[in-house]
Design a protein around this nucleic acid. Structure first.
Lengths: 122, 122, 122, 122
DNA sequence: GTGGTCTAGACCACT
DNA sequence: GTGGTCTAGACCACG
């Protein structure tokens, strides 16, 4: 697990996003036990409170579940995970085309740009 | 001209981004005079200083040029504008594929997902 | 640390210059932690925001680095510091000879003027 | 005659400086009639009022003299001109060594730096 | 009326 | 207590 932060937004929000991706992509498996809040804080090099705050948000989203005295676990609800993942992918694609459009690239142009560009190999 | 903000990042950075897009996409033409700082602040519903700070950043990027007591103008340097636009497009595409990859969608999968999905027709 | 200002130019630019010199001359050591923005503002007898603005510029120049909630530090990149110092010295010398030339003192005359003058022992 | 301005200081002050140099270096001769305020304003591409303000300052310094209905003339007082020129040169040299010193270059080092550097040929 | 600078003071995120 | 952001309002230089 690895965390990268920039200064432009609250760190706890960046943790939420990055953990969300780890979870919905399956890099942290359904049902898997998360490292302790303290350990996660160490890994991410942030204050324990900051990590705690991020985990609360993920629990609100039902992506993780706290078992008192036992630890925090990624949800086992694979339907929920799939829903989150599909939603995330759809939003990512939609935003991408919106971004390109605001630059003046319509759908066709963007597709062509990607194909000839080979931008993805880098 | 229209500005939308969210609370996750400094407003002045969001102004910089949105004006940058207006400029490099040509929605504000090369050489065109911008509304006064005070008018822009009114349009964006922010304080004059906040708008001023954003404009200073754009000037640092050489996208706008200040004529003392006369106003601020979009650069006429079309080469620079093209460079910025190409850079922006390339970064957008690159980040998109990185995002999809972190979700577990490799390049081919992403392409297919886009094609069948018809996601672009929102 | 000491700051002197005149009225001919923006104070924040004068702060930038004076801090830059403190940094590239090594009077503030590489890696050293700066006083807090508020303390620097008190030392310089300016408003916090004015000092903040100057520090942002120095950060753009990569001479200082902000550690969130922790403080601001002079860069440890000694190569960059050396580059800045050399550039600064070269510009200073170049401008000096240009100034003297505009007064009608060519290179040789200037050199002689310095030597006999003993101007340096004020 | 040629004028260059930057945005960091009032334009009228920059005009004063540049005209002062033209005068004390003899590029505008003692006793010579200056172009009209309007023509000077055109040459410098500034507003007439701005040029007027600069000329008032030079008159305060006794470097130019207004003959009503006749025009403005550079002083014929060669002693005064020499005094100004010597003062200006001395100040320039003094400031130069101070600048270098604040960078950590003492007098000897600066002299050597100039000699080996050949910075003046560029 | 144009842009630019500065102050004072409030509030937020993080440790 | 650290840095960062934003607002409100005053004032200056130039035309």
């Amino acid at each position: 697990m690895k965390f990268d932060f920039d200064n432009s937004r609250p760190i706890y929000l960046q943790i939420v996003e990055q953990l969300e991706i780890y979870i919905i992509s399956g890099k942290i498996s359904p049902g898997e036990r998360l490292p302790s809040v303290r350990d996660l804080a160490v890994i991410a090099k942030v204050n324990t409170n900051t990590m705690q705050r991020a985990l609360v948000e993920l629990e609100d989203m039902k992506l993780i579940i706290t078992e008192r005295t036992n630890g925090k676990f990624v949800t086992n609800n694979s339907k929920l995970l799939a829903k989150h993942r599909d939603k995330y992918a759809a939003v990512t694609v939609k935003k991408f085309f919106e971004n390109m459009q605001s630059l003046g690239f319509d759908y066709e142009t963007t597709i062509n740009y990607i194909k000839q560009g080979g931008i993805h190999e880098k």
